[in-house]
Amino acid sequence: MGCVPSKGRRQCPGYEDPVFLASQTTFSVSEVEALFELFKSISSSVIDDGLINKEEFVLALFKNRKKENLFASRIFDLFDVKHKGVIDFGDFVRALHIFHPNTSLEDKINFSFRLYDLDNTGFIERQEVKQMLLALLGESEMKLADETIEAILDKTFLEADTNQDGKIDLSEWQYFVSKNPSLLRIMTLPYLRDITTAFPSFVFYSEVDEAAA
């Protein structure tokens, strides 16, 4: 049932034509095909069904079967645009496109805003930021007193929430990251420039001729 090489790719659930995906993203056709090699490896790690479920995603991120992680879960949910509980190949390529070094800053800023807007209200609220800080502390085993956390939140909202209404809207976020560009570092994956080198086996399964790629 998994995604087997060559003709079998077309039977992979959610498989989309690499030429079409390349036309919608920053990737070349060859790069989309190389991403399929990565996708196959992740999507077959627990259940070989040609789709990435949350467990497989977390396994690929952490290299071990960890219990729930707020951030990995949030990224998964943003990749799973059709809210099916799984990521298909088209979702995977379109989401990774945001992380390509050549993708516009605006797209990266918008994605990062959605990432931190945990409850999808269109605002990053203080309680969401606190929830993320607590998740980070749990993950890293760093200990911070509650009053320290509140001080960090005060400082952050003083800087980011320019109209001081207790929540950060998209325009405030755009301004805040322009002043703190390091916050967008996680939104760029230099690896995506070299994806065909990292997964050279795509050449053996390529379904398009070199001129098209």
Partner: peptide, 26 residues
Amino acid sequence: ASPVTMNAFELISKSRGLNLATLFEK
């Protein structure tokens, strides 16, 4: 830098769960 001098998002962005580079590690 001390966590107190950093803004919350600088801290949050250090989460391993947000580091998608590990997807590419074999």
